[in-house]
């Protein structure tokens, strides 16, 4: 019983970080109809920045490091949006994929300049490495923390999309961008805001998992695939779908690790293939013509 609970919380924490990253991707797609391959680069930069901030002698606390990293990545997102992405809005998928692939290559190379090619360790404060016991079962504190942050992000996004002017405009941009512009909203500024928010979420996702994962060049390549699988399973543009997708992927990973450890990483792909075989536009997606 105890093992199952611990595996579950581990799976939830994996789902949580995936959700945070993938929901940024899906928000940008929803509001701008742009698919961003450089999203993985934002994740990597979040992780790299945290490794720098935590490692400095001034000893910034982990939370401040995470917040700072996410904000810097968000600014980077604005730069990328201003220089490249805004020109790909309303273009065909190939143009978007290749233009953001170009950005991905540039950021990967620059990342190696700043942080080198080796592995980087992110030490954790001892408070966060411990375990807590809740009603008989023991959980790693850090897993609970990530799960909590993911839930917080999900709720905050829901509140924002439902109950703030910015959120209304974002949803209006999905439904009818022309009418939104006609009613006096600067669509370009709105899109830039959404893109910066998407980058912020990617950076946040990279920053919070940095102590748990390997931080090295190449994590941008693998996370973007995981994020795509999550969004494609859930249906592009749907935040709730992304949450479902993240849970499915993380669950497949956990089951895989128990059933067949050497094939564990293939289970996530299998899950995606099965879902898409049944629903080609994802669980909550709208069929694409």
């Amino acid at each position: 019983m105890g093992r199952i609970v611990i595996e579950t919380i581990g799976g939830l924490s994996a789902a949580g970080s995936l959700f945070v990253v993938a929901t940024g991707l899906t928000l940008v797609f929803g509001a701008m109809r742009v698919i961003n391959l450089a999203h993985g680069s934002f994740y990597m930069y979040g992780a790299f920045l945290v490794s720098t901030f935590v490692g400095t002698t001034t000893g910034l606390r982990f939370f401040w490091a995470v917040a700072l990293a996410a904000i810097i990545v968000s600014l980077l997102g604005m730069v990328v949006d201003f220089t490249v992405v805004r020109f790909t809005v309303n273009r065909d998928p190939l143009t978007q994929l290749l233009a953001t692939f170009g950005v991905f290559l540039i950021l990967a190379d620059l990342g190696q300049h700043f942080w080198g090619t080796g592995f980087r360790a992110v030490p954790l404060a001892s408070v966060l490495t411990g375990k807590v016991t809740i009603s008989g079962a023991t959980f790693p504190v850090f897993d609970l923390l990530i799960t909590g942050i993911a839930i917080l992000v999900g709720v905050a996004l829901w509140l924002m999309l439902r109950h703030s002017v910015f959120g209304w405009r974002v949803r209006a941009a999905v439904d009818d961008p022309e009418l939104l512009q006609a009613s006096g909203v600067d669509l370009r500024r709105l899109q830039m805001g959404v893109f910066a928010l998407g980058a912020l979420l990617a950076g946040l996702g990279g920053a919070i998992v940095a102590p748990q994962t390997v931080v090295a060049p190449g994590i941008d390549e693998s996370i973007i695939v995981a994020a795509f699988l999550v969004t494609v399973i859930g249906g592009l543009g749907s935040v709730l779908g992304t949450a479902l997708g993240a849970l499915i992927i993380a669950f497949a990973q956990t089951v895989g690790a128990v059933v067949a450890p050497t094939w564990a990483s293939t289970f996530t792909f299998l899950a995606a293939i099965i879902v898409l075989a049944v629903r080609p536009s994802g669980l909550l997606g709208v069929p694409e013509r």
């Binding site: 490249v84 692939f101 290559l105 540039i106 190379d109 620059l110």
Partner: peptide, 9 residues
Amino acid sequence: QIVLGLVLV
């Protein structure tokens, strides 16, 4: 890679 990326964009 930077050259490649710039050319691509």
